[in-house]
Design a protein around this nucleic acid. Structure first.
Length: 554
RNA sequence: GCGCCUGUAGCUCAGGGGAUAGAGCACCGGCCUCCGGAGCCGGGUGCGGAGGUUCGAUUCCUCCCAGGCGCGCCA
């Protein structure tokens, strides 16, 4: 039950009804906003101004007609008052009964409150993180994980069928390089000094892996010829690193439906099939021994190589095959979440999809901007020289999963993120995640106290008792939740959830200090417990949508 | 040079073409015989610059300036 949608349809049906009378040849786009100022009502529409523009009349008389029609059409008596304001706004204030209606609804729906069917059961494919298994996840991957996982939860809650996938680049040069790097470290561990490859992976984690491998296998591979043991070392390195990635994501409470190995595309011949399909369509050409896709003619900066001169396919070719595979999976949307450093890749992938199917509109690519860790107000230095970035694991160990997820989602993914480690691990009011969780814990505590006093929330609490301005304000905040969730889903913007929760928490804490839930008259206690219950539910649901726990005690 | 993202309060950031632009942090001052003080109340300066579209622009468009990130037969 989305109050904003209800009001929106009230306005648009009235406008539709008067369309002919006003001489409108087609429906005008009408917007409904929640005014900044409370005195401007609960909702405000610019419909009269939009209509006036089309019919060449003054806005205010049209607004007056709109007001009359809205009154006439309000059979459910949800309207409290209407006024024409400013240049022609119609300000709509709902009756307290309308808000209580939502509250009753929220109470009845429980943890389903806020869910919707706007997704219409459509299948959405969500690919995120997909970091190469050549090193542990770092803080940037953490942001992609937080955004992707939250978006998945939000989309499911709004009626989408979501498949979450991690694409594992377990093929190619880098894996050879990784295997060689491990072999070199292993030999060094065995006391046979060996040099890392030119562009080898020099991170400390490779030394640890080598040590681990030697513990298990001894020195048996120390003198073996490289070509003989390389496949083994490549596999060991990839598998172990991937296992670490999976563990990190599990700790971070991020779940996938499928880990999709690139190798599978090669084994099943899908990379070759994709190339052949493009060839049949006449979109490839040979130059200097390599096979190029005519991507430039489809919006890319230049043509791209699919098959190298030595016959091996490029990473790009595999990625084209992967997206071709996804396109055939019956999804209505494919959402890719990439680090901002991959943005140069967007045009070529879109070009390839256009080449394959003529349509790339199902593909959405969300580019998540970079993360800077800040401690005590200073950026945490990352040493790129040694190949060591701050890992996601280190952050999780320092601040915990709840705080990390919350902080990652407290900014729109479009902007660079300064992740304040000091604040994130503060167990005090200044830490927004505790501030919100505290609402939940505090309400649980109220219910524990109520129970101790022999008070339980009845089946049909007298919510008509709720008429103080502070009570109504809190009801309005609760009522806004479904709209916040749908907007987060439609815009693919999980950060709207934590922002909303902060506002709700503010209102709740203020209310708590101004009024008492228990110990008033029996009716009032029941009514306020009902209010507390819905706030608790909404906070719990909101936190679950971003993958943060809602503790009963703190 | 070209492309993507971003310029809003001292700092970090919200703001679906609307009316008097908000929050947290930081800073200052208040509030505990009370259902949890991990809390509450009060205190204020700002849309990078220039044009354009519009009745109306922080929001959309163009240019300029600044920051971040890209521009491989690497992945």
């Amino acid at each position: 039950m989305n109050i904003r949608e209800i009001v929106e349809s009230m306005v648009s049906s009235v406008v539709r009804g008067k369309q002919e009378e006003w001489g409108l040849d087609k429906p005008v786009p009408v917007s409904l906003e929640i005014p900044r100022q409370e005195s401007h009502g609960d909702f405000s529409t610019n419909a009269a101004m939009q209509i006036a523009r089309h019919v060449g009349r003054k806005p205010r008389p049209i607004a007056e007609e709109l007001v009359a029609a809205l009154w006439a059409g309000d059979r459910s008596r949800r309207i409290g008052s209407l006024e024409v304001a400013g240049p022609g706004f119609v300000n709509i204030t709902l009756s307290d009964d309308a808000w209580r209606e939502i509250l009753a609804h929220a109470l009845a729906e429980g943890s389903r409150f806020g869910s919707s069917t706007i997704g219409g059961g459509r299948k959405v494919h969500l690919e995120f993180v997909s970091a190469n298994p050549t090193g542990p996840l770092h803080v940037g991957h953490g942001r992609g994980a937080a955004v992707g996982d939250a978006l998945g939860r939000i989309l499911e809650f709004t009626g989408h069928e979501v498949v979450r996938e991690y694409y594992v680049n377990d093929v190619g040069n880098q894996m050879d390089n990784l295997g060689r790097s491990l072999l070199a470290r292993y030999r060094t561990e065995c006391g046979k000094p060996a040099d890392l490859p030119e562009d080898g992976y020099r991170g400390e984690y490779m030394v640890e892996l080598a040590r681990e491998l030697r513990m298990e296998e001894g020195d048996r591979y120390a003198d073996a010829p490289e070509e003989e043991v390389l496949p083994l070392f490549r596999k060991e390195a990839g598998d172990r690193i991937l296992r670490g990635i999976r563990e990190d994501l599990e700790t971070f409470r991020v779940k996938y439906d499928r880990w999709f190995p690139e190798e599978e595309l090669h084994v099943r011949g899908e990379v070759g099939d994709a190339v052949e399909e493009l060839r049949r369509k006449g979109l490839l050409y040979e130059s200097e021994g390599a096979t190029f896709l005519r991507s430039q003619s489809m919006g890319d900066e230049k043509d791209r190589v699919l098959v190298r001169a030595d016959g091996r396919t490029t990473y790009f070719a595999a990625d084209v095959a992967y997206h071709r595979h996804k396109m055939r999976g019956g999804y209505s949307r494919l959402i890719d979440i990439w680090g901002a450093d991959h943005h140069g890749y967007v045009a070529r992938l879109r070009a390839a999809l256009k080449a394959l199917g003529g349509d790339d509109s199902a593909l959405e690519i969300l580019l998540v901007q970079f993360v800077t860790l800040v401690r005590e107000g200073n950026p945490v230095q990352m040493s790129t020289r040694s190949g060591e970035f701050t890992t996601l694991r280190e952050v999780l160990e320092e601040v915990g999963t709840d705080a990390a997820r919350f902080f990652y989602l407290l900014r729109s993914y479009h902007t660079h993120l300064d992740f304040d480690l000091t604040l994130a691990k503060t167990q005090a009011r200044t830490n927004p995640v505790y501030y919100i969780q505290y609402v939940h814990a505090r309400i649980c505590s109220i219910f524990r106290e109520a129970e101790a006093r022999g008070e339980t929330l009845s089946e049909h609490p007298p919510i008509s008792m709720l008429r103080l301005p502070e009570e109504v304000r809190l009801m309005k905040a609760v009522a806004r939740f479904p709209d916040v969730v749908s907007e987060a889903a439609k815009n693919r913007e999980p950060h709207r959830i934590p922002f909303y929760l902060l506002e709700l928490a503010d209102l709740f804490h203020a209310f708590y200090h101004q009024h008492r839930f228990l110990g008033e008259t029996p009716e009032r206690t029941q009514a306020r417990l009902a209010l507390a219950r819905t706030v608790k539910t909404v906070v719990g649901t909101g936190l679950s949508l971003i993958g943060v726990t809602a503790p009963e005690r703190m």
